Every structure is written in structure tokens, then in C-alpha cells.
Simulated scan of single mutants.
Amino acid sequence: MKLILTSEVTGLGAPGDIVEVKSGYGRNYLLPRGFAILWTRGGEKQISSIKKARDAREIRDLGTAQEVAGQLKSLKVVLKTKAGDSGRLFGSITTGDVADAVKAAGGPLLDRRRIEIAPAIKSLGSHRVSVKLHPEVSAALDIEVVAA
């Protein structure tokens, strides 16, 4: 099955890429979630607009990515959230929460889809989050989760 990706799918491709996948994967996972659209000649015209939107969001070159990684390394990010008496959170910290906290701390604007929270953050304290800025550059971001 030939599809055009509309959002990034790990291990498959980036928005605007034309990919060939098994029909079950495309029909049952990619299409219903809006990660892809069927490939057609008319759909190929949409690729340019998808790639323009992707280019606007991406960090363009390696030097800029390394500069942003340096900014993130020196940044102190504090997230305030509701927690119980034992230090356990009501819910968990999401990538959107981290992106908003970085922006509020005076850091660069980050795309929440580039932030990776390995084990879910469900407790107060110090945690490390990975941010994939460029295919060759990842930055580690230390965040402090405190009770509100």
C-alpha cells in the first residue's frame, strides 16, 4: 500500500514522505489516526504544502541545533503540578507540559513531538528528558517537578 505521511512516524518517515507499507498497517493504524493519506496523483500535490509546514517547524542546520542544545543544557526548568502527600502526581507530565515549561523558563520554542519522556514522569523530583533537535543532535534536559 502506497501512502503519503502527514506526520512523523518513528521508524517509517517524516511528513511528506511517500512510503510503501503492508496494507493492514496502513489501513488499521496509519490512516485512522491521521498519520498518512492514500497516495494519489492529486495527493502528490499536497506533498509540497506538507513539506513547507515541516520545514517551518524544523531546526534547519546542525550548527543551530547544537546552539539550541547548549541553551537547553544551561536552562533550569521547573514544572508545578498537583501531587498527593506521598509525592505521587495526579496524572503524569506530558511532552506538551515540558514544551510549555521550557518556553516559560525563557528557553527556545520546542515542538512537543521532538520531546521524548522515556519512563513516564509520575512523581515529584528531578527528571531527565531527551529532546531530538536534529537527526544528529539530541539534547538532555533536566526538569524539576514540584508540587503546586
Rank of each mutant, 00 (worst) to 15 (best):
2 K>N: 11
4 I>N: 05
7 S>L: 14
9 V>C: 09
14 A>W: 11
14 A>G: 09
14 A>M: 13
14 A>V: 13
21 V>Y: 06
22 K>I: 10
23 S>V: 13
24 G>W: 01
25 Y>D: 00
30 L>M: 05
35 F>K: 13
37 I>W: 00
40 T>R: 08
40 T>I: 07
46 Q>T: 07
47 I>G: 00
48 S>C: 09
50 I>V: 11
52 K>G: 09
53 A>F: 13
58 E>H: 14
62 L>S: 09
66 Q>P: 05
67 E>G: 10
69 A>W: 04
70 G>A: 05
71 Q>Y: 02
72 L>S: 04
72 L>A: 06
73 K>F: 03
74 S>D: 15
74 S>M: 15
77 V>N: 02
78 V>D: 07
80 K>E: 11
81 T>C: 07
81 T>P: 03
83 A>E: 04
85 D>C: 05
87 G>L: 00
95 T>L: 04
97 D>A: 14
101 A>T: 10
101 A>M: 11
101 A>D: 08
103 K>N: 12
104 A>I: 10
109 L>V: 15
112 R>K: 15
113 R>Q: 10
114 R>S: 13
117 I>V: 12
117 I>M: 03
118 A>T: 12
120 A>D: 11
122 K>D: 08
122 K>E: 08
123 S>Y: 07
123 S>W: 06
128 R>S: 10
132 K>V: 12
133 L>R: 07
136 E>Y: 13
141 L>I: 05
143 I>W: 02
143 I>M: 02
145 V>F: 01
145 V>Q: 00
146 V>G: 04
146 V>I: 11
